[in-house]
Design a protein around this nucleic acid. Structure first.
Length: 297
DNA sequence: CCGTACCCTAGTTT
DNA sequence: AAAACTAGGGTAC
């Protein structure tokens, strides 16, 4: 295994690895102690991307890694380490809630997951809690992915489109996918057969790209926005889930519209068109964690 | 564009 | 303590 360390002062605005990986953006990393989403400090995280194993740990000043390949360029891409968080914050509107959210969760970055696993994990996310979505992806990898031996331990790749397309709906249901099982199979089949790829959306104007992704079964506007933001680099995408909708009702009532499309347009304008997805991720996370604290009182 | 059914399970309430 | 009940990052029809 190769090893290295990325100096965090080379990542403008810093990095908070745990916030980035445990804020419901990516379901493709696992924590070595298997205690994701339980609120305690993170340790080492690992994933397999393009058949390369990558394990990371954050220290005060670096992001340490060990990998089957030179992981620095991989990590820069996966964790968007070159995004200038201060510039992104400065480019947005001068809003008290937004400012507070940015300050409270410094170093949280938007992820840039590989598109197929991202698409599948967000199809699985419908009506589901983060810990269970994560569990589903782990089960899919264990049942349908390839085993990979690292230091005497077996890890599993995320299944390919072919592997999921050839799985039976029953077998997928047994991964606790529920009614999402046929969606996953159908979508994997569309990609395996070459009929469509998530990347077909690349290059399209944002709303056209969102529309394009809804061709996949199990993908409506919300899931499409997640894939655009967390995999295809559309930083203006704002996934309108129930949490964000209620936040909009409370904090930005003037943006509340009848349709997904119109509410999306209004909130993007309100949060700053270019980086609305970043703003959304911070606000969403801020309100969520604040809610947890209040609930504990 | 609108309403409803959908699969599963942890957490809560009877 | 076992059995209902509820809701949880939507989408297809």
């Amino acid at each position: 295994m190769e090893r290295g360390a990325i100096a965090l002062d080379s990542c403008p605005g810093g990095l908070d690895l745990r916030l980035t990986l445990e804020s419901g953006q990516s379901y493709l990393w696992r924590r070595e102690d298997d205690r994701m989403y339980e609120g305690d400090p993170g340790g080492r995280y690992y994933t397999i991307v393009d058949d390369e194993f990558v394990r990371v740990r954050q220290t005060d000043t670096t992001l340490e890694w060990e990998s089957t390949t030179d992981a620095e360029p991989v990590l820069r891409e996966l964790l968007r380490l070159d995004d200038d968080l201060d510039a992104i914050m400065a480019a947005g509107p001068d809003d008290p809630l937004l400012r507070e959210a940015y300050a409270a969760h410094r170093g949280m970055r938007i992820v840039n997951d590989p598109s197929f696993p991202c698409l599948i994990s967000f199809i699985c996310s419908a009506q589901m809690r983060v810990s269970r979505i994560h569990g589903m992806q782990t089960t899919l990898a264990e049942r349908f992915g390839d085993g990979m031996e690292i230091d005497g331990e077996t890890y599993h790749t995320f299944p390919t489109p072919e592997q999921l397309a050839s799985a039976s709906v029953e077998a997928l249901r047994e991964c606790s996918l529920g009614y999402r099982a046929p969606y996953v199979r159908e979508t994997a089949g569309m990609i395996a057969s070459g009929d469509a790829r998530p990347e077909d959306a690349l290059g399209l104007a944002y709303e056209d790209a969102r529309e394009s992704l809804t061709r996949f079964v199990g993908v409506g506007p919300k899931v499409a926005d997640c894939v655009l933001l967390f995999s295809l680099g559309y930083l203006e995408a704002v996934p309108l889930d129930t949490w964000l909708r209620s936040a909009i009702e409370e904090y930005f009532p003037e943006c509340d519209r009848d349709s997904y499309r119109e509410t999306s347009r209004a909130i993007r304008e309100r949060l700053g068109d270019e980086y609305a997805g970043y703003a959304q991720t911070y606000v969403f996370h801020h309100l969520r964690t604040a809610g947890t604290v209040e609930a504990g009182e």
